[in-house]
Nucleic acid binder design. Structure first.
Length: 269
RNA sequence: UCUUAAUCUCUU
């Protein structure tokens, strides 16, 4: 019961109250387990408080609770998000010292961390290390690699990874398609973006608000505001409600076009 | 009940 409540609060970004419950467990004699700690550690890691997470990692051991692979994965993710890639080696070492083997999530987290840092070489090293250790890169691994290629403008290589993913018998999902649509849209290559958009739909993945925002952004980037507005209509037909990102994209688009009147109008909306 | 991938912000 407590774990579920703590999870809900963490998911809402309310670490404060999740800690209240965490402390309350102590008083009410309800024993915390590894999952309780992992949930709070994950909460810290997602809000840029890795150091606090590491404190909890130590504290749980004082209480005779052994950290699991999930515990370490959460910490590694926290470090990756903060750009503290160097420190991940120490954590990996500690984890191995306890006889815990890095799993797919560990590798995916590291691959993504190195990608974000722009260290694509190291990301690929881990990708192959994964294979060597008998772990299979999955759709998450590939989506990170594809994203990295898109962010650096290597759309050709992004598509190569997309092909490689399918050649391995894996299936792209809505996030994979959206990642590519973002990449093409950012370069203003709208024909390619729409091609993927249609492929996504025929593959059975309904476009999400993120997918639409990416396309809208693409139209705005090339100054086609009417097309952008048209898409907001279309998304509403799909029962998707424009969010703050949608509005920000359109406002920036009008500003860039020196159409301040219209920008203010959208802000008002 | 816990861990990994996707969208906006001139300049950076």
């Amino acid at each position: 019961t407590y774990n579920i409540m703590i999870r809900g609060l963490c998911a809402n970004g309310d670490l404060q109250n999740s800690l209240v419950l965490f402390n309350e467990m102590e008083k009410s004699g309800c024993l915390r387990n590894v999952i309780t700690y992992n949930t709070i550690i994950g909460g810290y890691c997602k809000t840029g408080k890795v150091d606090e997470a590491v404190e909890l990692l130590k504290l749980m051991q004082v209480r005779n609770l052994e950290p699991s692979v999930v515990t370490y994965n959460a910490i590694i993710n926290g470090l990756c998000r903060e750009g503290r890639m160097k420190e991940t080696s120490e954590i990996l070492e500690e984890m191995r010292g306890k006889g815990l083997k890095p799993d797919e999530v560990t590798y995916n987290t590291l691959v993504n961390g190195y990608c974000r840092e722009g260290n694509f070489y190291q990301a690929l090293v881990l990708h192959s290390e994964m294979l060597r250790n008998g772990l299979s890169p999955d759709v998450v691994t590939y989506t990170s690699l594809i994203n990295s290629m898109c962010k650096t403008g290597n759309l050709h290589r992004a598509m190569e990874f997309f092909d490689q993913l399918r050649a391995r018998g894996l299936y792209p999902n809505d996030r994979t398609y959206t990642t590519l649509i973002v990449g093409f849209s950012q370069q203003g290559l709208m024909n390619e973006a729409y091609k993927l958009f249609n492929e996504m739909i025929s593959d059975g993945f309904p476009p999400s608000i993120v997918t639409y925002n990416a396309l809208i952004n693409g139209h705005c980037a090339v100054g086609r505001m009417e097309d952008a507005l048209c898409l907001t209509q279309e998304m509403e037909q799909r029962k998707l409600v424009p969010d703050v990102v949608t509005y920000s994209i359109i406002i920036s688009g009008f500003c860039r076009n020196s159409e301040l009147e219209r920008a203010f109008c959208v802000k008002q909306q």
